[in-house]
């Protein structure tokens, strides 16, 4: 490189360039994975019956019971009853805080109980009507009245 370039400056620029490469590699891979996930989740269409979630896998540790109740359209009382905790003083606590306070030895107990309560409360899907095979129409087929 040029003899007029300050060695410290040169080292800084080389470090920055290498850092840039590492950033591109690291975040590029993460963007690629995130993009693949992103493609698998199309935007949610607006629901005519209000925003009631049905997928219990969306429940996270930071959520509170009133929030989950609203999100899934399940009364708070049912959720609190399912985990056996009084609603008083627990409205603003996250699932993680409730777990630490009431069930420190059973990791993830509350989230599983809440999921089960929601699934039990939400009405099961209507069974599909059995398909009756329809014979293909032929010129000899009798006319349907």
């Amino acid at each position: 490189m040029s003899p007029h370039v300050n060695p410290k400056h040169r080292a800084l620029i080389f470090t920055l360039t290498i850092l840039g490469c590492l950033f591109i590699l690291f975040f590029g891979l993460r963007v690629f994975h995130a993009y693949k996930k992103f493609q698998g989740h199309p935007p949610m269409p607006p629901s005519p019956t209000g925003e009631v979630e049905t997928d219990v896998e969306q429940i996270r540790d930071w959520m509170t019971i009133p929030f989950i109740s609203r999100m899934y359209g399940v009364p708070e009382k049912i959720l609190f009853d399912a985990i056996g905790i009084s609603p008083e003083g627990n409205h603003k606590k996250s699932i993680e805080e409730l777990d630490e306070e009431y069930f420190p030895e059973a990791d993830g107990y509350i989230i599983e109980r809440v999921k089960a309560a929601i699934l039990a409360h939400q009405s099961p899907p209507m069974p599909a009507a059995p398909l009756t095979p329809v014979p293909p129409l032929t010129p000899d087929s009798p006319a349907v009245p």
């Binding site: 840039g20 591109i24 590029g28 992103f38």
Partner: peptide, 24 residues
């Protein structure tokens, strides 16, 4: 909606990638 975490993951990493490209 409730799948906002996917958006967050994508945008967060995209910002890092952009910064890397600029530094490079």
């Amino acid at each position: 909606g409730s799948q906002w975490e996917v958006v967050n993951e994508f945008l967060g990493n995209f910002g890092g990638l952009t910064l890397g490209i600029i530094i490079f």
